[in-house]
């Protein structure tokens, strides 16, 4: 967490033109997101479905679908990545920026053995690498991510592994070219809690041993609080609050973050003694976003000025944290 940020996103906006029936619509997936990740830092991105967290992160290595219109700026160590062609981005994808996807079962070619997947990955940067050298390096990586009897398993195909094992292999593949930034898009959502805990431990260990930066996306605030140094809470394509993990969970400053915490039960609470306080209404529609604060229609504190313009993301608590709310409320927990 020293010096210049590794990656810096500035005022990113992503729109998807879609056709619904006879109408041409614009889905405003991301509406001005600024984030930065320092070397060796774990940034958590939390939000409900449709909040724009996955779109923001897949814009970094340029993995948005071709019809997406992205403006703003994404700089990796000062180099602008947004709007560059595939040939240019190949030097960054994999080598500098690794990615782990949500469903381990669906992110592999079922007809390719694990050893061959590693060979293909290594040959992107070293076209003359032999199969034997590739296997040696694959085994070292698989042992690093905690897959047992790695050498025997190189000949296995994806269906011969469990979900947790596939996710370990996915992390090993993302690290294969020695990336500095690992983007993990809901890497544990499809896994059982016991396996989830192991993957989270693994990511934390890799951060310590390799000094990589990680962006960890999840809809589970408790899970993110356990791994990330800093959390950004997204809603309606905007970052509504950004703070160090412990502070965000113990004392949220934005009504949405406070609402998310109050809506989920915690250990020790029971329906007979404590009622849940769910957030009323439904998640905002990215086709017709609110002119003002996206959370205003569901917010208990909302007044007329909330619906006029999108509030600024402004620093509070001595600049350590940011909140996008015109009413600065402190919530205890």
């Amino acid at each position: 967490m020293n010096g210049a940020p590794l990656v810096e996103i500035e005022n990113l906006r992503v729109d998807f033109p879609i056709v619904r029936g006879a109408e041409r619509l614009l889905v405003r997936a991301v509406r001005g997101v600024s984030l930065s990740v320092a070397r060796g830092e774990i940034l958590g991105l939390v939000g409900e479905s449709g909040s724009g967290k996955s779109v923001t992160v897949s814009a970094i290595p340029g993995l948005l679908p071709p019809r997406a219109v992205a403006v703003g700026s994404i700089r990796f160590e000062g180099t602008e990545l947004l709007g560059r062609g595939v040939r240019f981005l190949r030097a960054w994808r994999g080598r500098r920026i690794g990615m782990v996807f949500q469903e381990p079962g669906r992110s592999y070619d079922p007809l390719q053995s694990v050893g061959s997947a590693f060979l293909e990955t290594f040959r992107v940067s070293e076209p003359r690498l032999s199969r034997r050298d590739s296997d040696d390096r694959a085994v070292a990586l698989l042992e690093e991510v905690g897959l047992s009897s790695a050498r025997e398993r190189l000949v296995n195909f994806p269906h011969q592994f469990s979900g947790g094992q596939l996710q370990r292999i996915g992390i090993a593949l993302a690290l294969a070219q020695g990336c500095d930034l690992l983007l993990a898009d809901e890497p544990t959502t499809a896994l059982d809690v016991t396996i989830q805990a192991q993957i989270v431990d693994l990511l934390r260990r890799l951060r310590a041993s390799r000094g990589i930066a990680i962006v960890f996306i999840s809809h589970n605030l408790d899970l993110v609080a356990g791994i990330a140094d800093r959390i950004a809470v997204m809603y309606g394509g905007l970052v509504l609050e950004e703070a160090p993990s412990a502070e965000l969970v113990s004392a949220p400053r934005h009504p949405y973050a406070a609402g998310l915490l109050a809506a989920a039960p915690s250990f020790g609470s029971h329906w007979t003694t404590a009622a849940l306080a769910p957030i009323p209404g439904r998640v905002c529609d990215p086709v017709a976003p609110e002119p003002g604060c996206p959370f205003a229609p569901r917010c208990s504190l909302a007044s007329r000025e909330c619906a006029v313009a999108i509030p600024e993301l402004r620093p509070v608590a001595g600049g350590r944290r940011l909140t996008r709310c015109i009413k600065d409320t402190e919530y205890g927990r």
Binding site: E48, N220, L276, V283
Partner: peptide, 14 residues
């Protein structure tokens, strides 16, 4: 379901 909606359904069941 999303967290905010999950709370609504749990309260409905209760």
């Amino acid at each position: 379901l999303d967290v905010s909606v999950q709370g609504q359904i749990l309260n409905l069941l209760i």
